[in-house]
Amino acid sequence: MIKSEHHGGWIICFSFIVALMLTAMPLPEWATNWRPAWVAMVLVYWCMALPDRIGIGLGWSMGLLLDVLQGTLLGQNALGLAVLAYFIIKSHQRIRMFPLTQQAFLICLLVSLYLFLSLWVRGIMGIPPDSWTYWMPAFTSMLLWPWLFIILRDIRRRYHVS
C-alpha cells in the first residue's frame, strides 16, 4: 500500500546528483564565492514538497556526500543540512502557502543558518574564512530560488513524483 504511493525516486536522486555536480563545477576565480548552495536548495524543495518521504536522514546523508566531495570535515555540511531539513519539515505547511518572493527571503535566512553552522565548525577547527564573501551563497540562493522552485515543481508534476 505504502509502496505504491511512492514513485519517481530516481527523479529525486537525479536532482541531487545534478546539485552535487553544480557544486563541483569549476567557476572563474571571482565567482567561486558566489556559488549558490545547490544541494541545500534542492533539499529544501523536496522537504517542502514531500515531507513524508524526504527528511533529516536524507539531509544528513547528502551532507556527508557533500563533505566528501568538498573535502571538508566529515559532518560539517551534514549537520547544517540536517538542521535545515528539520526546520523545513516542522513548518512545511506554512512555507507552502508563502508567495515565491517571501519563500526566497526565507531561503536566504535558512541558507545563512546553514552557512553559520559551517562557520561555527570551521571556527572551532581554527580555519575561519577571511572575507565577508563567505555569506554570498545565501544571497545568490535567494535570487535563484524562484527559478529552481518552478523548474522542480514542473518536473515533479510531469513525472508524478510523490
Binding site: 563541483a24 569549476p26 556526500l65 566528501v68 570535515l73 566529515l74 559532518g75
Partner: peptide, 29 residues
C-alpha cells in the same frame, strides 16, 4: 566531527564514500 578532526579514524569511511562521489567528479570534469 571531532573524531574525524582529531584522530582520522573515519578516513576509511571517507575513502568508501569517495567511490560514490567519483562519478560526479568525473562527469563534471
Amino acid at each position: 566531527m571531532t573524531v574525524d578532526h582529531r584522530q582520522g579514524h573515519l578516513e576509511s569511511v571517507r575513502s568508501a564514500l569517495s567511490v560514490i562521489i567519483y562519478p560526479v567528479q568525473y562527469l563534471v570534469d
